[in-house]
């Protein structure tokens, strides 16, 4: 008997992934799809430096975005959990989700407006005389991609960290003070380790989607800020080379799997035995 949820999972998850994997072992000869199994695409991906470079850059951007997002999200989550009156916490969490009210695409465009040559930031800084000429290192490069992605994913990082902070029994912190720790050392010895599951969750939630993002690099990345997903899109659509695109997609997927698995194992270690 095949149950409905199983069928659903097979159709929506397994079949598309299997199709991609299958495509990656085929090849394209002009307009026709050659369905003989071959490792040609993988060989090409390994041989041509452009792919390796794009993969490395994607990984790097995701890591930087993840670190920046989580590091900036933590103080916000901490403030809401520890310094906002209990009755106001849900309001604050609601406010955190405000960026979601506009589409992702529009938010990326807005960063273009903010970071552009004649943008809000440059004209503002010029106006108050901090700079003499518009800054050019903030748009159409890696920095712009990092800033835009970090902003877009901030709520995803704030929420799991907030939840893990909320679950910390406040008497544990008093116990740490009672046993001679200062507020800072109590934070390092108790709060931070206990918030770890939330931090690891935030890292995963930010890292996994950013590595495959293609809207942001396309719009604000310029030529130097393109990522692997842009190449996959180009292979599939412009170059009409679905097998090569599929092979790159599989490689990116494996990369994500490796990093995510490492984090999940880390999370297990921290979660071990928590109620």
């Amino acid at each position: 008997m095949v149950s409905a949820p199983f069928l659903y999972a097979v159709l929506l998850l397994a079949v598309p992934v299997a199709a991609i994997v299958m495509f990656s072992f085929w090849s394209q000869s002009y307009l026709d799809l050659d369905t003989t199994l071959t490792l040609k695409n993988y060989r090409e991906a390994a041989a041509d430096p452009i792919y390796g470079q794009l993969l490395a850059r994607s990984l790097w951007i995701s890591l930087v975005v993840t670190v920046i997002t989580v590091v900036t999200a933590f103080p916000i989550a901490y403030f809401i959990s520890f310094h906002v009156a209990p009755g106001h916490k849900s309001l604050w969490i609601f406010l955190v989700t405000i960026p979601f009210w506009t589409s992702y695409l529009i938010r990326v465009f807005l960063w273009k407006v903010i970071l552009g040559y004649n943008g809000v930031l440059n004209s503002g800084l010029l106006g108050i005389g901090v700079i003499d000429a518009p800054l050019t290192f903030i748009l159409y490069n890696l920095n712009a991609v990092v800033i835009t992605l970090a902003h877009a994913f901030a709520p995803f990082a704030i929420l799991p960290i907030f939840v893990s902070l909320e679950r910390i029994d406040r008497s544990l912190l008093e116990a740490a003070l009672d046993l001679g720790e200062t507020k800072v050392s109590a934070f390092l010895r108790v709060t931070l380790p206990l918030a770890m599951p939330g931090i690891v969750a935030a890292v995963l939630i930010v890292f996994i989607p950013t590595i495959g993002d293609y809207v942001t690099p396309r719009l604000v990345g310029g030529p130097g800020g393109l990522m692997i997903a842009n190449m996959i899109q180009t292979q599939f659509l412009k170059l009409n080379n679905a097998p090569m695109g599929a092979a790159l997609a599989v490689i990116a997927m494996i990369m994500v799997t490796v990093v995510a698995t490492a984090f999940v194992l880390l999370n297990r270690r921290f979660l071990k035995g928590r109620s």
């Binding site: 008497s171 009672d178 001679g180």
Partner: peptide, 16 residues
């Protein structure tokens, strides 16, 4: 943290 007192909390506050 500098008082000569120590406390046993109602919840015990054992570090998990």
């Amino acid at each position: 943290n500098r008082r000569p007192t120590n406390m046993v909390f109602q919840s015990y506050a054992i570090f998990p």
